[in-house]
Amino acid sequence: MLTVTPVPRAPHTAAAFVACSLFAGGNAVGVRFSNRELDPLWGAAVRFGASALVLLAIMAGMRLSLPRGRALGGAVLFGTLNFGVTFALAYYALVRIHAGLGQTLLALVPLVALLLAVAQGQERFRAMALAGTVCAVAGVALASRASLEESVPVLSLLAVLGAVLSFAQATVLVKRLPPLHPVTMNAVGMTAAAALLFAGSALVGDTWRLPDRAATWWALVYLVVAGSVLTFVLFLQVVEGWGASRAAYVFVIIPVVTIVLSAWLDDEPLTLGLLLGAPLILLGVYLGALRPARQRDT
């Protein structure tokens, strides 16, 4: 007899999921504006360095203490994976991979998170989660007009798949670490990631300069405040309430938000693919993340 834990119905967790998806949906547009003026790794380093400073200031205002020992090491490892490795690989991959294919591959995060959580004894395998991921990935491919026939450099493909694996593992890792306030976890994690990204930026020879264009500054402000500080604090709350694999379904909502925002802010045309893909995405999210689980035999 196997008892499947029901999905928590706490309103604040569902609200955090929706808000996190909306805020994160603007990230790709913000990065697009940032990359027009700033080298990719340098832009990512500035983003997470500034975000870390904001979160450290919030920590001071809330009188939250810095973690020590295993908690400190866990927060550094989480940040290295979740922000440093993931975004270094993603920024590298998206130089050569079109956004549509990149979004489709990143939509695999819920499935990879589920498999990792099962392998590490955190969750039980759920057939509906697999079905939800398949529906969602198909919907994202339609909505983003990703072509599986396009020529993709092997290193770029490996980089984006590495980003998927890194983010999924960081999401699963959170549940195994000593509990920390989400602000503290992200403050320490982003500090560690910023150090890694600055080092990577220097290694590849990026030009270190501040933006000249107002649009780039506004993009960075969004990426820091909404796209990093608010998004990842909310995301950890969702992980705590729903678990790793369900929380990772933000990755299949994000493309829809991104496409709509890009049409509004960056003149990207809306297509029939969005109308066809969005219902599949929503069905996938319902099956994999929102559908109430019932006790059943396996």
Rank of each mutant, 00 (worst) to 15 (best):
A16E: 13
Q295G: 04
Q122E: 06
P110L: 15
L94E: 12
A117N: 11
V18G: 05
L220D: 07
G132T: 02
L114S: 10
A16G: 14
T80K: 00
V7R: 12
L142Y: 08
P40D: 08
G288D: 02
L223Q: 14
G273P: 13
L272H: 08
D39K: 08
R9G: 11
F78I: 04
T80Y: 00
A75F: 08
R47H: 11
R9N: 12
Y91A: 15
A117D: 08
T191W: 06
C20L: 11
M1P: 03
R291L: 02
L94C: 07
A52E: 07
I58Y: 00
V233W: 11
G61Y: 02
A113F: 09
F78Q: 07
L2S: 09
W42S: 10
R213C: 09
G49D: 05
A138W: 03
L274V: 13
Q295N: 10
A119S: 15
M59N: 02
G121Q: 03
D212G: 13
G205Y: 06
T191A: 14
A202E: 02
M59E: 00
Q237C: 05
V252G: 10
R63T: 01
L106P: 05
D266N: 09
N35G: 14
G205H: 10
P179N: 04
V85E: 02
R291F: 01
G43F: 01
